[in-house]
Computed example of a mutant assay.
Amino acid sequence: MTTSLITSDAQALAVAEDLARHLQGGSALRDRERRLPHAELELFTRSGLWAISVPKAYGGAQVSNVTLAKVIARIAQADSSLGQIPQNHFYALEVLRVNGSAAQQQRLYAEVLGGRRFGNALAELGTRTAHDRTTRLTRDGDGYRIDGRKFYATGALYAQRIPTSVIDDDGVQQLAFVPADSPGVQVIDDWSGFGQRTTGSGSVLFENVRVEAQDIVPFQSAFERPTPVGPLAQILHAAIDTGIARAAVEDALAFVRQHSRPWIDSGVDQASADPLTLHAFGRLNIRLHAAEALLERAGEALDRAQRDANADSVAAASIAVAEARAISTEISLAAGSTLFELAGSRATLAEHNLDRHWRNARVHTLHDPVRWKYHAIGNYYLNRENPPLRGTI
């Protein structure tokens, strides 16, 4: 099966809409039974959407970040796990754009245009902080060897390459684009989170894994100068949560229209006429629309930072994205919970699996603490302090 080539923002949005309608049908069942979406991912990849951020100079569409965020949000609305699986794929492509050599860009972008998926092996368990790394990269002749263990490796289970954060002999962090079929690589399906159940966010074990020098891209330096790498990662998280929120609101609307009964004191014959229900749906939709608007605004700021990366433009993008992350966190959790308050007890029946929206939001929004985003946003506006460059804001 060949991979389609998307050439414009409009085409990317249209393809995402068609694909999302197809993916939505089985999303509740895949979540309930934890059916890993191998076939669905193939459709997703062959649609050309995994290559939409490849620069035009290398044959890609180089869509705006507004479009990229809308695509991820739309897929996440259909199936939030499928919306999250490519998050680190696009993150790795941005690291490649910012820090890769021309030869590395030419080769790896061509792989993506040909339908290859990148996963990730970044985070580790048992370190002092979430950003500490112990996985080692050691010189071996004209190449290197990798030893270590990773967790939260979203997408690695489905990937042809696994971009892996490693510490070299000088203590500097690099990103190794490791072929998934390399001897000594073991991808372990041990993700047991109660949400985002089919993301494959489990472990990757590296035992004396050979990696070629051409597959090592500088990583740490992307956070030692102003680059859009951090806000690019974060806007994708905001898009996933916004998609989850949209799905929860749409399902709540449909359930109340079709199944719910009005409360006896409302004095109306239909739940859709209950004045307190109308008030609650009004609040939900306002907040959802605000999240979608802030997501688009964040994409515009990130586009500006990519065109001209400097301390001011990257800080402005980081703050805009942090604002989108904050509100998308809140509305995704609120929508997933309020759904049951408005729909009633019948909505809790297992056959509907409507709790997946809250479970998915609760798990995904734990990626990094939103409380620190409010701190960074307040510090930026009040004290004119730029947020840290490390990429978590």
Rank of each mutant, 00 (worst) to 15 (best):
Y158L: 08
S328C: 08
F118A: 05
T134E: 13
P231I: 14
S313F: 02
Q11P: 09
A347G: 05
F118L: 01
A213P: 10
S80G: 09
H259E: 01
A180Q: 13
R128Y: 14
R210P: 11
A222Q: 02
G282F: 01
G126I: 14
A324K: 10
P228C: 07
R46C: 00
A247G: 04
E296C: 09
G200L: 08
E224M: 07
R356T: 01
N208W: 03
A298W: 10
L13G: 12
T277F: 02
R149I: 06
N386D: 04
A316Q: 02
Q87E: 05
R297D: 04
L278H: 04
L82P: 08
R356D: 09
P387W: 03
G141W: 10
R283C: 08
H237I: 13
H38V: 07
L157Q: 02
A92Y: 10
W191Y: 06
I85R: 00
D312A: 08
A10G: 12
Q11L: 05
R297V: 06
F90A: 13
S345R: 15
S221G: 06
R362S: 01
G243I: 05
D215T: 13
I327C: 12
Q234F: 06
D303T: 01
W191H: 01
R246D: 11
L113W: 00
S201Q: 08
I319M: 01
E207R: 01
A78L: 03
S221M: 11
E111L: 11
H38F: 04
A280G: 03
H375S: 09
K373E: 04
A78G: 09
R30C: 10
L333K: 10
D147Y: 07
A317T: 05
L205T: 03
P387V: 04
P86D: 08
L288R: 03
L232S: 14
L41C: 06
A110W: 08
K150F: 06
K56W: 00
V95L: 07
F177E: 01
H357P: 09
Q84R: 15
P275D: 07
Q62I: 10
S53N: 12
I377M: 11
L236D: 02
E124I: 14
V314P: 03
T392C: 11
H367M: 04
A123K: 09
A14L: 15
L339P: 02
A252T: 13
A14K: 06
I52F: 12
A176S: 05
A12T: 12
A14N: 15
Y158M: 02
G336M: 06
N120G: 00
E330C: 06
G171W: 00
A103F: 00
E296T: 13
V187N: 09
A14V: 11
G243Q: 09
R390P: 07
G344D: 08
A238V: 12
G267S: 01
A324F: 05
V211H: 13
R161N: 05
D189S: 14
V15N: 06
A324E: 00
F151K: 10
P37T: 03
N310W: 06
G299I: 02
L5T: 15
A92D: 02
L205E: 02
I72L: 02
G48Q: 10
I72D: 01
E330T: 13
P231Y: 02
R128M: 14
R346W: 13
V314G: 00
